[in-house]
Design a binder for these strands. Sequence first.
DNA 1: TCGTACTTGCAAATGCATTCGCGTTAGCTA
DNA 2: TAGCTAACGCGAATGCATTTGCAAGTACGA
Lengths: 127, 127
Amino acid sequence: MQRQTQQRVAIESAFVAAGRPLGPQEILDAAREQVPSLNLATVYRTLKRMIEDKAIHPVELPGESARYELQSAAEHHHHHFRCGECDAVYDLEGCVEGLHKLLPAGFLMTGHDIVLYGSCAACGTSL
Amino acid sequence: MQRQTQQRVAIESAFVAAGRPLGPQEILDAAREQVPSLNLATVYRTLKRMIEDKAIHPVELPGESARYELQSAAEHHHHHFRCGECDAVYDLEGCVEGLHKLLPAGFLMTGHDIVLYGSCAACGTSL
DNA sequence: TCGTACTTGCAAATGCATTCGCGTTAGCTA
DNA sequence: TAGCTAACGCGAATGCATTTGCAAGTACGA
C-alpha cells in the first residue's frame, strides 16, 4: 500500500498553498521548507504517482516544460496566465466565445488552449 | 557572403510548398525529395540562419518541440490549429474578443496564444 | 516494539532535441 | 576555369528534463 511520508505531505501541501500550477523545481523549493532533505528525484517520483492517482494533472505551456496542478482545479474548464516577470503561471476563470469562427472549412474542433501573457498582480504592484 | 546551395533552396521551398508551420524532421522529409542526401544537422543550421535573417520564426505549441513558419505568414496576428490525427499544424486567420474579461484584477496582459485541437480537413475527409 | 517492503537520497543513466568538430564538397568571384 | 572558403554530411557531443539502480531509511500493520 501507499505510505504517508513527510516528503509526500510536503509536496501535496505545496500545491494547496500555491493554488496555481507548479513545476518540479518550484515544488522542490517550496516543499523543502518542510523537508530540507527533499530530493528532486523524489519530487518526480511523487508527481508520477499523483498523476496515476489522478490527484494532479499536467499543465503544458508553449516552449516550457510541464507544470502540474491539483485535479480539483482542473475539474472545471479554465485557462492560464503566465507572468513574464516572475515566470509564475496562474489559473484563469472563464472562457471566450467565437472560437469556432476561426475554424477553416472542413476542420473539426475537439478542444482548445488559451494562454495569456503579461505581468501578474504581485509583480505589477512591486514596480 | 551567403551561398545559394541546393539544400537551402530545398528547405526554403519546403516551407513555401507546405504553407504551414513545419518541424525540423518534417522539413527534412520534405526537402529530401529535392536533395536526398540532406542531413538533419544541415536543416538545423539552415533554420538557425533563417531565423537570424528573419526569414522564418518559431511556432511553439504546448508540450511539443518547435516548428517554424515563414515570416510572411507571421506578419499578421494569427493562431494555430493542431490536427490530432496527422499531427500537422495549420495557421488560422482571425482572433477572438473578450480575452480581457479573463484577467484577474491587477493583472496586465501583453499578449496571448490560442491553439485549437481537432482533426483537419484532410484527415476528416479520409475517415 | 519488530519486521517487512515501500520510500528516499544520491549519483549515474536515459531520451530527446539540438549543436559541434572535422574532413570533404561545391558555390561563387576573379 | 581555378581557388577560396562557406556549407555539407557524418558521427560524436551537449544540454536539459526526467528516470533509474541501489543501499540506507522509515511508515505502519501485526
